[in-house]
Design a protein around this nucleic acid. Structure first.
Lengths: 126, 126
DNA sequence: TGTGCTGGTTACGATCAGGAACCGGAAGAG
DNA sequence: CTCTTCCGGTTCCTGATCGTAACCAGCACA
């Protein structure tokens, strides 16, 4: 996710479809929503995030945080101590997304069994 | 040094984390949310969907619909006429996701300018 | 002297999303 | 009887994205 190779800016057509697509391209990747959810409880250090998001690699955490920062959803604060300390927290814009990620998390937990069962049934039918 | 001294505590957070990741892997792709939003207004034919979701290829529409069907979010109905007619509509499970996709759509439309501006500012800073 | 923690970056390979083009059947158009 | 169109879907191939592993600099601690 090199910043210089990111997709082109959103056009100014008022097509909801296109807007949703553009935002999804930013926030619909593998880790963004998870990070936003994590930061919902308050600011966190880099390594704290790394430990609490199971399975994320250092590289992907860096890249995803950089993108979220670029999009104004997350703020990065460096404290030049030794060892250095870098904190990330949601901006107002990031917090405005929280209710959605919360809702999504609740939906996921509530319906995961139904999805799992549907998948098993579908695969059995083939 | 003994490395095994820090067992990753299986908290409620990390559980939710795994579930969210699993559901995101299904529904967080480029087109699923858009299709669910489209079908929110009622059942639609394949080609109807293709025309109304700007930019989707036939292949991705087929694949995404197949996955949504597999996960029990969408129901597929074939009417063997000539030309064949295939209708797709949301299941109850699919409809339960609607409020979230609606909210996401609204959020995307409302905040896209803020994201766009943040991105421009960030890029200018580099 | 060397090992660990901090927050990264770089190199590289595998995987998989996604677009272009194609398919086969039927019904018009001419 | 060809030529095109519409239908839903599939095959092929490229290039973006993700992940692993290694490396970096600065400082503390032993």
């Amino acid at each position: 996710m090199d910043v210089s190779t990111l997709p082109p800016p959103v056009t100014h057509e008022s097509d909801t479809c296109a807007v949703v697509r553009a935002i999804l391209a930013r926030v619909g990747d593998k880790w963004s929503i998870l990070i936003v959810r994590m930061l919902g409880d308050g600011s966190m250090r880099f390594s704290e995030l790394r430990r609490s998001i199971e399975g994320i690699s250092q590289r992907m955490l860096t890249l995803t945080l950089r993108n979220l920062e670029r999009d104004g959803l997350v703020e990065r604060t460096v404290t030049p101590t030794t060892p250095p300390r870098v904190d990330y927290e949601l901006t107002d814009l990031g917090r405005s997304l929280q209710s959605i990620t919360e809702a999504f998390g609740r939906w996921a937990v509530t319906h995961r069994d139904q999805i799992e069962n549907a998948r098993i049934r579908f695969d059995a039918r083939q």
